[in-house]
Write a protein that binds this DNA or RNA. Structure first.
Ligand SMILES: [Mg+2]
Length: 209
DNA sequence: GCGACAG
DNA sequence: ATCTTGTCGC
């Protein structure tokens, strides 16, 4: 009935999902094609964008967008209710295949260890990782080679990454990706903030112009 | 009670 | 996320 219970309901669902998805973790193979998603907003309209990026050619192979009215307001910790539907729709419009999905959000580094990257991966049943610009939960530990573990509930749930130049970012497993495979994925982009995410951001907002 | 709070 | 141009700094 009231908003209060709606939030409590979805938060409880997140807690359950965080444990349920662990059984789907699998080794991440060679990452040749990466998919990245992001959203942008206009007046009463939002654009979800998805791009497929070729690691070898360092270029966008395909880009798709999906426009709709924001289905939910932004509530810290429940971002997926607002953005996941449009991002999911944009990904489904892609005809190109990809190995892992990069989401502009958190994965396991979340108050209930199930951020938007976790839900997108579960819905798509494909490997995902969350890559955010700011921490929402947990604390970054000591850095070792440009990376520091993100500690939450007494365990490592992801990594803080310090690029050779630029602001640091935070990456954590979403769905189907093991924590131990995250460092290799970070290395694929030479520790820099992933280009495909910048491309998805660019595509999302250019669509509203 | 107060502050913090992905995008 | 968005409102916004030039400007300070690496
Ligand atoms: Mg974004």
């Amino acid at each position: 009935m009231c908003a209060r219970e709606v939030l409590r309901f979805f938060e409880e669902l997140q807690s359950w999902v965080s444990d349920a998805v662990r059984g789907y973790d699998a080794p991440l193979g060679h990452v040749r094609r990466v998919c990245a998603v992001d959203a942008a907003y206009g007046d009463d309209v939002m654009a979800g964008a998805a791009v497929v990026w070729s690691v070898g050619e360092r270029r966008v192979l395909e880009g798709r967008t999906y426009l709709c009215e924001p289905p939910f307001p932004y509530v810290p910790g429940l971002l997926f209710l607002r953005e996941a539907p449009a991002l999911f729709a944009a990904v489904e419009l892609l005809s190109s295949s990809w190995d892992v999905l990069l989401v502009d959000a958190h994965g396991r580094a979340h108050p209930r260890e199930a951020g938007m990257a976790t839900f997108l991966g579960a819905a798509l049943r494909k490997p995902t990782v969350g890559i955010a610009k700011k921490l929402l939960a947990g604390v970054a530990g000591e850095f070792t080679d440009s990376m520091a573990p993100i500690i939450l509930n007494n365990k490592t749930v992801g990594y803080a990454v310090k690029p050779r130049s630029g602001k640091s970012y935070y990456i954590s497993p979403g769905y189907g990706v093991r924590l131990e495979d995250v460092p290799a994925l970070v290395a694929v982009f030479n520790y820099e903030y992933p280009e495909p995410l910048r491309e998805a951001d660019k595509l999302a907002r250019s669509t509203l112009t």
